[in-house]
Write a protein that binds this DNA or RNA. Structure first.
Length: 809
RNA sequence: GCGCGAGUGGCGGAAUUGGUAGACGCUGCAGACUUAAAAUCUGUUGACCUUAAAAGUCGUGAGGGUUCAAGUCCCUCCUCGCGCACCA
């Protein structure tokens, strides 16, 4: 008998699968379709890491399972190759980004093939292919034409290291998520996408899709919806009005001062001569602070009085207007009405600057702290006696009559800063003309290709390197044909991934981004697997993109992904996050496979280690264990046995085992519970190993099914057994998923516990329809139980058939 | 501070949704095979107390409660992880 040798087996089958194209998905097949998508990678020059293997491995298991179930499965793969890392790699290695990407894709694809994933490579593409980004640009123009892409001069997040503007979502704790450098503010003219128009839809749509609650909650949280009111305050003795947003209009009578963000446009207008010096120096000090400093909640409140007053519209009293950096220009209107009695921050501020604190909601002790709970209104004129909710409604109604307040919903979500000052991205297909303004490049001139240049290092002056290429920049206005200039900013690295899943449905179409019939056939992605870290980035962006496309009639479904699953993080053995900077931190799946365990064992270990969505420490022993398991499977099927048609007394056990296992593995796969599915397969192997007569017909049928169950998890060794050991003509991965007989999944006899007064004292063997009296009799025969029952009367008997017998004495 | 999730053996983790806690894997221990080791196979592996055997007591972060019965349900609290964070 040959030893299990993954190395020769794996490379052989990977080649055969590629040659026979068994994983190629067919458009418009009669079978029901199933689209399983795994986030496509950025092809770096480095080794593939465990996070990739988690994503692709999970997708591959599902893809193989669904194929076996008779679905026409689309399991595609491509590359997301625009963006900063490719450019940095190119600069470092002194090659062009185009060359770097080509090399890296070849390298990465080779690794993916080495892992044996069942991707349909015929549909592969890179977001950097001009035939692809033509449509990325075209889609941008649809946003532009719909008024959802616009230019604005705003204060944006600027990464001084990468020398580019960033979206809000790309800033984590005040640092650029890619390079970890501190982000600055910079005023630049930028392209933005109006994602805020879709804030409500992005929340709503989550109801109709199956996302882990963690993911849905995080998106809802990020969008940050709050319901409240906008109220106008007039500045005393001046013509200005200050608009504020508040979620607590009920506390208006308690507003004893106002605060403007230092950047607020009214600040310079209302500040008095006496206060000007103080205000100016405060603004200057604020500008010198980083976002991290400014957002530190533990910092003591600072601020300065403008000298101006506003009129509280409820009390008609004059209240001072301050500026303070705890009020952010980026949220609401950049101005607040401060109610120190019922807001922690306002309370702290008022205390520090000796501003009066007026209680308007009873129930707290405002001398000690702000009271933010419920209660009855006090000191509030016509609101007195109402509770908070009633008061909110009443005051907004009253003020609305006078035209100084209205209900308002606010979101934390900001419009998406969509331009980058880097070379390696899709050029924004706009021409700037002195006469006609921003003019879209006509469809027949797309794509606007990136010019090949010698220098593409970022300039750092807020201009894209493209701006230095005069021959490219200078063009004719598509409208009036007069000389005009191209937009030189490029799109963010997220642009290509916004809609890539749609392109898999029809990857080679030159007429449109994807044919409508194919969009309809492959429709919604049934299962989308990816990393948790993309929840408020790519996943949110692409949902927005898709919703817009739906509104434009470009796609048939309102949401892109029917279900989302994210994998947990692999931690180092000491429980910390795997990172490149740490010694031995990153383990690469292929080198582990090359150590002799093989790809199948590595893939199984990743699936077996922990529940799919849970973070867990990486364990090299787990791979060894899975290798051992696969070796045992290999030895079992290769064990020489005498074939016989005779029935064996062990047949019943064999049948029960395989039927139970089919049921369990199928149920677990539906829930992406890979770890328990594998445990069930291991359990079954243990049962099978104990069988003495391995020659019966029942045995052969069962072991055949067993290999089919194992196939999605260990595709190579099962294929070798199927096609070489058993000489089947067609791949195990094209075979039909075995069915089970419900009757054969139930054991005739089960052991149930016997409890006396709720404590386990014995065990009896019963059937599911053993009567209570019979069960009691059996229990009485157990010496230990009998000892406890001896001489005592049973008060009560609880008997749950097939579960438990509990006797109360 | 807000939102979400999790606390079970030496370790990773199971537990049919209230019914014999610790499946499966790893590790450890003992044995078989071997000149020896590796590999493989067999047994064993929650703690305590006893042990000739059987039995027994405790045990799912802590404390309380509901129930014949709680890892699972309810209340109070603690710890850890993730995300957001001066969001008005």
């Amino acid at each position: 008998m040959e030893r299990y040798n993954p190395k020769t087996i794996e490379s052989k089958w990977q080649k055969k699968w590629a040659d026979s194209q068994i994983y190629v998905a067919k458009d418009f097949d009669d079978k029901p379709k199933y689209t399983v998508l795994t986030e496509f990678p950025y092809p770096s020059g480095a080794a593939m890491h465990m996070g990739h293997a988690m994503t692709f491995g999970g997708g591959d298991i599902v893809a193989r399972y669904k194929r076996a179930q008779g679905f026409n499965v689309l399991f595609p793969m491509g590359f997301d190759a625009f963006g900063l890392p490719a450019e940095s790699f190119a600069i470092k290695n002194k090659v062009t980004p185009q060359m770097a990407v080509e090399q890296n894709i070849a390298h990465f694809r080779h690794q993916l093939e080495r892992m044996g994933y069942s991707f349909d490579w015929s549909r592969s593409f890179s977001t950097t292919d001009p035939e692809y980004y033509k449509w990325t640009q075209w889609l941008f123009l649809q946003f532009f034409k719909a008024g959802l892409a616009y230019q604005d001069e705003i204060n944006i997040n600027w990464c001084p290291f990468c020398k580019t503007g960033l979206a809000n979502e790309e800033v984590i704790n005040g640092r650029h998520e890619r390079c970890d450098n501190l982000v600055e503010k910079k005023k630049l003219k930028q392209w933005l996408l109006k994602i805020t128009d879709y804030a409500e839809r992005l929340i709503d749509g989550l109801k109709d899709v199956d996302y882990p609650s963690r993911v849905a909650d995080q998106q809802i949280n990020w969008i940050g919806k709050s319901i409240g009111a906008e109220v106008d305050f007039t500045v005393a003795d001046q013509e200005y009005k200050i608009k504020v947003f508040t979620t607590r209009p009920d506390t208006l009578f308690g507003a004893t001062f106002m605060v403007l963000a230092p950047e607020h446009s009214l600040v310079s207008k209302i500040t008095t001569k006496e206060q000007k010096a103080a205000v100016d120096s405060y603004i200057k000090a604020t500008q010198g602070k980083s976002d991290i400093e400014r957002q530190d909640t533990n910092r003591a409140k600072t601020g300065v009085f403008t000298g101006a007053y506003a009129i509280n519209p409820a009390t008609q009293e004059r209240i001072p207007i301050w500026i303070a950096d705890y009020v952010l220009m980026g949220y609401g209107t950049g101005a607040i009405m401060a109610v120190p009695a019922h807001d922690d921050r306002d309370w702290e501020f008022a205390r520090k600057f000796n501003i009066p604190i007026t209680e308007v909601i009873g129930g707290g002790n405002i001398d000690r702290e702000a009271y933010t709970g419920d209660g009855k209104l006090v000191n509030s004129g016509y609101l007195d006696g109402l509770d908070v909710e009633e008061a909110k409604r009443k005051i907004v109604t009253e003020l609305a009559k006078k035209g100084i307040a209205q209900e308002k919903v606010n979101y934390k979500l900001h419009d998406w800063v969509y331009s980058r000052q880097r070379y390696w991205g899709e050029p924004i297909p706009i021409v700037h003309c002195d006469k006609c303004g921003a003019v879209p490049v006509p469809d027949n001139q797309l794509p606007v290709e990136l010019p090949i240049v010698d220098h593409y290092e970022p300039t750092g002056d807020g201009q894209s390197p493209l701006s230095k290429i005069e021959t490219w920049v200078n063009t004719a206005c598509p409208k009036c044909k007069e000389p005009a200039k191209r937009e030189t900013d490029t799109m963010p690295n997220w642009a290509g991934s916004n809609w890539y899943y749609l392109r898999y449905f029809d990857p080679h179409n030159n007429e449109t981004f994807a044919d409508a019939k194919k969009l309809k056939y492959w429709g919604m992605v049934d299962l989308y697997m990816g990393g948790m870290e993309h929840t408020t980035l790519h996943l949110l962006y692409s949902r927005f993109h898709h919703q817009f496309m739906y509104d434009q009639g470009l796609v048939p479904t309102p949401e892109p992904y029917a279900a989302r699953r994210g994998h947990g993080m692999l931690l180092t053995t000491d429980g910390t996050k795997m990172s490149k900077s740490k010694d031995g931190g990153v383990v690469d799946p292929i080198s582990v496979a090359d150590d002799g365990y093989g790809v199948d064992a590595v893939r199984m270990a990743l699936a077996f280690l922990a529940p799919y969505d849970q973070s867990t420490p990486w364990s090299p022993e787990a791979v060894a264990g899975c290798y051992r398991f696969l070796t045992r499977v290999w030895n079992l099927v290769n064990e020489p046995v005498k074939k016989s048609s005779a029935k064996s007394p062990e047949d019943v056990i064999i049948q029960k085992t395989i039927n139970k296992t089919i049921k369990k593995v199928g149920a677990d796969l539906e829930k992406t519970n890979f770890n328990t599915a594998i445990a069930a397969l291991m359990e079954a192997l243990n049962e099978f190993s104990k069988i003495k007569n391995k020659g019966s017909a029942v045995w052969h049928e069962a072991i055949r099914k067993y290999i089919q169950l194992l196939a999605p998890f260990a595709p190579h060794v099962t294929e070798e057994i199927w096609c070489e050991v058993w000489q089947e003509k067609e791949s195990v991965h094209l075979s039909k998923w075995p069915e089970y007989d419900e009757k054969l999944t139930v054991d005739e006899f089960v052991k149930i516990g016997v409890q006396i007064n709720g404590k386990l004292r014995g065990e009896i063997e019963v059937t599911n329809d053993t009567a209570e009296a019979e069960a009691l009799k059996l229990a009485g025969q157990d010496a230990n139980v009998a000892g406890y029952l001896d001489g005592k009367k049973s008060k009560k008997v609880i008997y749950v058939a097939g579960r438990i017998l509990n006797i109360i004495v």
